[in-house]
Simulated scan of single mutants.
Amino acid sequence: MKYEKLLFLLLSYLLLTVTACSDETKIDVTPVVENEEMKIVVQKRIEYQNDYENFREITQKEQVQKVKEIINDAIWENVEVEMAEPPHYKFRFRNPNPEEAGLYDVWISPKNDKLEIVSRNKGYTH
């Protein structure tokens, strides 16, 4: 449990650091409306397979809001990318409002210093 929290905070911190250091122009995204039923489901790739297992479910309102802010503040590029391997993690916002739900694929760089994220709705950020 402690490891999972540390990993989540590390992923959030790396995403925030990477997006803060970029000099690309921002794509305007609609602010997310707070919803008490909102949660994030994180899945981890099963080693050497292209299958995923549920890793963590984030239901604390503050943590969900922080991730939404990071995603909304990220600089998204409207490009199509092709990665060498399947995503290390996937996460999605679970929300009754389909406009706020989204699936994000996450890769961790070989040096563990960057996150690369692909969203079908928003594009690519690193």
Rank of each mutant, 00 (worst) to 15 (best):
Y48Q: 11
E99V: 08
V79R: 03
T30R: 14
A101Y: 07
E4V: 10
S22W: 12
K26D: 15
L16H: 12
E77G: 02
V64R: 06
K26I: 13
V118D: 02
T19G: 06
L7N: 07
K39Y: 09
K68Y: 00
E47N: 07
V81W: 01
I108Y: 01
R56K: 10
D113A: 09
L16N: 12
H88V: 03
N97F: 04
D28L: 11
G123K: 03
L6R: 13
C21L: 11
E100V: 03
R56E: 08
E80D: 10
N50T: 15
E57S: 12
D105F: 07
E47D: 10
D51Q: 09
F93K: 02
T125M: 09
V32R: 07
L10Q: 12
V64T: 08
E80P: 00
E80G: 01
L115G: 03
S109F: 08
L115I: 13
G123I: 03
N54F: 02
R45D: 02
E34S: 08
G123S: 05
K39Q: 10
Q60G: 08
L115H: 06
D28G: 08
E37R: 14
H126Q: 13
K122L: 14
E77V: 04
Q63W: 10
D51R: 14
G102Q: 08
E82C: 01
E69A: 09
A101I: 03
V106A: 02
S109P: 00
R56W: 10
T30F: 02
L10N: 13
F55K: 01
K61M: 09
P86R: 07
D23S: 11
Y3N: 10
R120M: 07
I75P: 00
S22C: 11
I71R: 02
T25Q: 15
S119Y: 00
W107F: 03
A20G: 04
A101H: 06
D105W: 02
V81H: 03
E82K: 09
F8G: 08
Y13M: 13
Q43P: 00
G102W: 03
V42M: 12
Q65M: 05
T125C: 12
L14N: 04
W76A: 05
N50S: 14
V106L: 15
D73A: 12
V41A: 12
E62W: 11
